[in-house]
């Protein structure tokens, strides 16, 4: 047993972190929110060039996967920098399209970053993230997986960087029986890792803030009430982290659901603490903290509400009886 990232995985994380730091994601996120996708698309290509989407695509189809642990490493960094776009959805699409004929047709362009994909659960009644910019629109309804012919108008999300659309009904039926449970495990793993990264960024920013913000003549970070909230956020995040990587190793639906509910819960609790400790400045849209605060809320319910994830955990326990 060696439940530790190896040197190569740590170097992969560090190189993504450096690239995303240099990309000035806050400015890019704000343009993405207004529907100006040029900068975001360029960053998408560089993320693909770093091999991130290929991690979910088998080697036979121009990928280097499946490598869920490395994918989790990457998604922590994507979350840390609040990268916009249908990241989880593109990974999920790659798993939904794993039948050989579909894989041959679609996966190469997902791995290379040429194609962004999005997925709506519930067919025409469902919601697809960034349907206005994704080229591959997948609609998963009662009769199977369809290639949607278009998308509806963009609806605002609590997280302005998440542009929500419906998908048009009809379209080509790609397969009546895509591997939904397996795709959901990948989606929950990626979302959990992304949320962990969001939470870690919120913690870092808030620690930096309370060290320099002075009131009553001392940094507010010297007050126990402030310290203890940040300690609790740290505890929640550091106990979510092993669930995320444990799920990446086992790829069991229960582990992925546990990782999702814990990492998203920890990120959301950290967001509440970050907002409270920043005070009024944290409550403004113009301060960059808002880009992470709103994402923590949105990820909590994306790809499985806390309730649905707990149901997966309990269902699994009942089967093991």
């Amino acid at each position: 047993m060696r439940f530790l990232l190896d040197a190569e995985q740590r170097a992969f994380a560090a190189s993504l972190d450096a690239m995303l730091t240099a990309a000035d994601t806050p400015a890019l996120i704000r343009r993405w929110s207004r529907g100006e996708h040029t900068g975001g698309r360029a960053l998408w290509s560089r993320i693909a060039d770093a091999g991130v989407f290929a991690l979910a695509v088998p080697e036979a189809y121009d990928g280097c996967g499946p490598r869920p642990v490395d994918l989790a490493v990457a998604f922590v960094e994507l979350g840390r920098h609040a990268v916009p776009g249908p990241l989880v959805e593109t990974v999920t699409a790659a798993v939904l399209l794993s039948e050989p004929a579909l894989a041959k047709r679609f996966l190469g362009s997902l791995a290379s970053g040429e194609t962004m994909a999005t997925v709506a659960l519930g067919g025409a009644d469902g919601t697809a993230l960034d349907g206005d910019t994704a080229a591959l629109l997948l609609s998963l309804g009662a009769d199977g997986l369809r290639l949607a012919p278009g998308h509806g108008p963009v609806r605002a999300s609590l997280d302005p960087a998440r542009r929500l659309t419906s998908l048009a009904p009809g379209g080509e039926l790609l397969t009546p029986g895509p591997p939904l449970a397996h795709a959901l495990t990948w989606a929950r793993l990626a979302t959990a890792a992304q949320a962990l990264g969001v939470g870690l960024a919120l913690l870092d920013r808030t620690v930096a803030y309370v060290r320099q913000r002075t009131q009553f003549g001392v940094p507010i970070g010297s007050f126990q009430a402030v310290k203890h909230r940040l300690a609790d956020a740290t505890i929640a995040l550091e106990f979510a982290r092993p669930l995320v990587f444990g799920a990446a190793l086992t790829m069991s639906p229960a582990d992925a659901a546990a990782a999702k509910v814990s990492a998203c819960g920890a990120a959301y609790a950290t967001a509440r603490t970050a907002l409270q400790l920043h005070g009024a400045i944290g409550y403004t849209a113009e301060y960059d903290l808002s880009l992470w605060l709103t994402k923590a809320r949105a990820l909590r319910t994306a790809w499985g509400t806390p309730d649905e994830c707990r149901a997966t955990v309990l269902g699994d326990r009942a089967r093991r009886r």
């Binding site: 203890h228 940040l230 300690a231």
Partner: peptide, 16 residues
């Protein structure tokens, strides 16, 4: 323990 987390892991200043 929370003081230790805040001071030794997060690097927050010691206080009363």
């Amino acid at each position: 323990q929370r003081d230790l987390v805040a001071e030794r892991l997060l690097g927050l200043p010691k206080g009363r």
